[in-house]
Nucleic acid binder design. Structure first.
Lengths: 348, 348
DNA sequence: CACGCTGTTGTGAGCGCTAACAATCAACCT
DNA sequence: AGGTTGATTGTTAGCGCTCACAACAGCGTG
């Protein structure tokens, strides 16, 4: 294996053909599992391939077939647990289907960034893109961009005619809220995520619906930005309300729109001397790995990110290969994880 | 099959050439910013490109230049905060340099998975790979794989002759340990990460060195697996030791090898009625976004993931473009973030 | 004016592969 | 036997691009 020159080119199909004593076309047939090749020939070729360490040149292949077998993923905020997990799911599913996946992470979706990302991917000839862009404005921008390939959204809502996959956020919120009401709470307060986010809207909607179904007038919604800090601030406000006790609606249960904010709420309550769940029950959303170790362990809603990834890729590939035409929208079921933070206790 | 319009092929360089009234070669020159093109001609071509919505075919380009301008990333455990953040940094840096980045996430690095990942990327003709494989066995396996392209490791240590970038884990551990000793603690206990991990080893080494430098015999090391649960277990053991009080080495300060385990330790201490930092000070490593909202806010070590990503890509590109030959190893400086969990209090 | 130079443009070949078609041969039928 | 079939293999022509080189203009120089 002495490499005298660095420039030794990798073997080509012609090299293999020569080595096996057949034509390059036969080599091609073996590689693409064409049925009409004699077993003996096939073996010759396979052996030659192995001897030379041959590997098909994907660029040449792409050039002639006009298929790059490459998918793009555009994601915002990839360091967060949710997007990161979805990414993993996407990537695995795509690899199984024989696609290469290329990711573009945006810090936070400025409109220009999105366009650049699409451009970047387009210039590499991706055949389709999955966009994890959970803000309404992004989905809007994406729809208007009119990309030259199919686009599937994750958590992109279904108001526009882009196909997509989402967790049933509303159902998740309903489950939490119902769980809290069932535990005997008179009402449930809510710390929502930022306005523009579709997940945020759906969770708030689910919460509101359940309250209204039970004839309860929903209390004022507090709003955060998903960060622990914003949760902390909301928690301080809630703590104030809980202690004041003169308002018509007592604060004994809070549904926080994600686990990180819930962490902040818990801290604020603790600092104010309010016991959880004794005086105020708290629930979150996402089930991040830390949630089980929060003080106290957090009741939350788990998302099956792997399933979301698999379904998105499935949908995208269907579009690419022309098996789907319309803007289908799939929902994945969430799962309620009950932990100590909403456990009914002996205290009032 | 009634898609008459679906089959319109994207415009080629020849189309642009015809539109602009020049040869395809001139178009190519404009596209690659060749200096010897008359300004007027250049404008003609640019206009034609715009009119037709032309885009260079990357496959054809790759075929003739033998450069795919694609990089691979192999990462284990991408849903964790650290790897996910590094990934973002890598991806941005690569895009800036005009490379496409394709990620392969492995659940947890079985040897076969690694080989498959390299194969997958190789079959797409990546020009180099960044591997975020922080376990010694992975790096070993990677070195033995002898990939047909340069490989740069992140947190891969420098004992093998693979170039790489790492945070100066040992320095980080030293900073924490010194900080705790300076606060007056007689000794510092340590909850380490799993054995095979290089980060784990380096953090333990840094801690041990500082103790020895100060003439303190390091207490027994507890070991976890990075998860909050394992930290919780270690915390229970430490709580037992702290309360027993008959051992020669008092438990008043603990350096936990990552924040998630520290969360578990904190919970165990709290449940046993031990106050933090009053009775036992606790420090972590990573500075995950939640750390600031732990009970109490956690002293920890912050890593500059963006810098790590940028440097890895820089190193890799240098190797690809032949500007670097030897297995250089870069270190990134950590930053100590001091919070309440190690704040000296009035109690002894 | 012949010569070389530089700047600008065009021509032709070929990267490594697949798709379409042609060629060959054995087997089978009437 | 002659023709038809089907399986197997080879031949040829590009895919869209870049590279090497040729061609030609305009210019200054001896």
């Amino acid at each position: 294996m002495a490499h005298p020159a660095e420039d030794v080119r990798p073997p080509t199909m012609a090299d293999v053909a020569r080595e096996a004593g057949v034509s390059h076309q036969t080599v091609s047939r073996v590689l693409s599992d064409h049925p009409n090749v004699r077993a003996a020939t096939r073996e010759q070729v396979t052996l030659a391939i192995e001897r030379l360490g041959y590997r098909r040149n994907s660029a040449a292949r792409a050039l002639v077939t006009r298929r790059t077998r490459t998918l793009g993923v555009i994601a915002v905020n990839t360091a967060l647990y949710g997007p990161a997990s979805t990414l993993t799911g996407l990537e695995e599913a795509a690899r199984e289907q024989g696609y290469l996946v290329s990711t573009v992470s945006l810090r936070t979706g400025e409109g220009q960034g999105l366009k650049d990302a699409v451009d970047h991917l387009a210039s590499w000839g991706v055949e389709g893109v999955v966009a994890i862009t959970p803000q309404r404005s992004h989905v809007q921008a994406l729809a208007e961009l009119d990309a030259p390939f199919p686009v599937v959204t994750v958590e992109g809502g279904h108001q526009l005619d882009l196909p997509g996959v989402s967790l049933d956020q509303e159902l998740g919120a309903r489950m939490v809220t119902e769980h809290l009401l069932a535990a005997g709470h008179e009402t449930v307060w809510h710390v929502a995520g930022p306005d523009d986010w579709l997940e945020s809207e759906a969770r708030t909607a689910g919460w509101r619906t359940v309250l209204e179904e039970n004839g309860i007038r929903p209390p004022r919604v507090l709003t955060g930005d998903w960060s622990p800090l914003s949760g902390y601030r909301a928690g301080q406000e809630l703590a104030g309300l809980a202690l004041a006790r003169r308002g018509a609606t007592p604060v004994t249960a809070v549904f926080v729109a994600n686990d990180q904010m819930a962490l902040g709420v818990l801290r604020a309550l603790r600092e104010t001397g309010i016991r959880t769940p004794g005086q105020v029950a708290v629930a979150g959303f996402d089930d991040i790995p830390e949630a089980e170790y929060f003080p106290p362990p957090l009741t939350t809603v788990r998302q099956d990110f792997a399933a979301i990834g698999r379904q998105s890729i499935g949908l995208l590939v269907n579009h690419i290969e022309g098996r789907a035409r319309k803007a289908e929208h799939l929902l994945v079921e969430p799962q309620l994880i009950m932990r100590a933070s909403t456990r009914p206790s002996n205290e009032s």
